[in-house]
Design a protein around this nucleic acid. Structure first.
Lengths: 202, 202
DNA sequence: ATTCCAATGTTGACACTGGTAACTTTCCGG
DNA sequence: CCGGAAAGTTACCAGTGTCAACATTGGAAT
């Protein structure tokens, strides 16, 4: 037992509690005080472990990007060998991850975290997930199954834009892919992905 | 002089002040109190004109969608007659609008406004902007310049997803299309749009 | 074992926020 | 001219992030 007299590992406890909260309410908003209360600890205890609320958000986002990266890796590993197959699986997994973890996904792009450089680990985790996508594109270009006129990074960011847009529009209830709701446009992630992959195929 | 003994038209004044604030700080966050203060009015005066802060946000978002719709209309009108040309102009205008009006664009998708039905005017404005895009797609299908296998609405929402994703990633500083910044992926809106339009072309 | 210290946690405050109730001022229609 | 509705004010409430001052704990050095 390495530490902790009163709680155990409050830093991790806070992160866990925050994860649960944002998962159950599908929103990225919570207060430090309710977090502390739910752990039976005083409202200021968190400040022994995080400089700010932003710092906690940053750590949460870092873990989120790592989880997202793992989901992408799993999808790619479970798919066939060709780049179009693998990219189809990855983009689909991306959208599914976002929809299944609404609160967590929103935190990845929390406005308070958009100043790059404040949280190096976060930047690194985000870049790692992107690099996985970019590398898959580059591999496809090398094999000849994808267009090679454009840099892999530019193609990858175009793919990212599309799936990110779909995910956020869906989470914000601006589009719908379920039953017929007349008050918002219909959408289809399969169609989006098919159009995307076809547009980069050789 | 139609009315207003103390201020003139506080409802509109508040909306204007909010617009200025979010424009200059490129963020969608502001407090009702600073709004009131900047108009030389007490902090509770706003509640004579808006039930909530949400109501003010809703009105702001409604105006934002209308402005966006106008930007799309202008772009389409200034473009050539073929659907690919027009859609290229519209998607480009969409991204430029978002980047030029960061705060306003964020408000369009503010989490507090995602419950559809709370603000009918907002839903209607958002649907009108989407309808303009969808109609352009449908026109292209009718002329034979765009693929006709898929419903126009599904194609339109795919286009929307892509440009929305690009815009939000850019506003959140997750991608960059300016000089070489090593800490975020490079992107190119022109490439994205070209890929998109080619993927729906016949 | 005793002592000391750094890590951890608590209490109480501060400024700020959105929101409400009760009161006052102003204007307009009868 | 006057009464009531509209518009604005003051005073308050609960909740938030944050900080400083204090208390407690456990392990390390003696």
């Amino acid at each position: 037992m390495k530490s902790a007299f009163h709680h155990g590992d409050l830093a991790d406890g806070l992160l866990q509690a925050a994860s649960s909260l944002i998962a159950e309410r599908a929103s990225s908003e919570f207060s430090l005080r309710e977090l502390a209360l739910s752990l039976g600890v005083s409202h200021a205890a968190a400040y022994r472990h995080f400089r700010d609320k932003r710092a906690l958000l940053g750590e949460l986002a870092t873990r989120g990007f790592i989880a997202l990266d793992e989901a992408l890796a799993t999808a790619a590993n479970g798919a066939g060998p060709t780049a179009p197959e693998r990219l189809t699986a990855m983009t689909l997994a991306y959208i599914d991850f976002a929809c299944a973890n609404a609160g967590a996904y929103r935190i990845l792009f929390h406005p308070d975290l958009c100043e790059r450089g404040d949280f190096p680990a976060l930047t690194q985790a985000a870049m790692a997930a992107f690099a996985r996508l970019e590398q898959e594109v580059a591999a496809g270009q090398a094999t000849g199954s994808l267009k090679a006129e454009l840099p892999a990074a530019i193609i990858a960011s175009a793919l990212w834009s599309a799936v990110h847009g779909y995910a956020t529009l869906f989470l914000d209830r601006q589009i719908d892919h379920d039953g017929a709701a007349g008050d918002r446009p219909p959408a289809d992630k399969t169609v989006l992905i098919k159009l995307l992959i076809d547009s980069v195929r050789r």
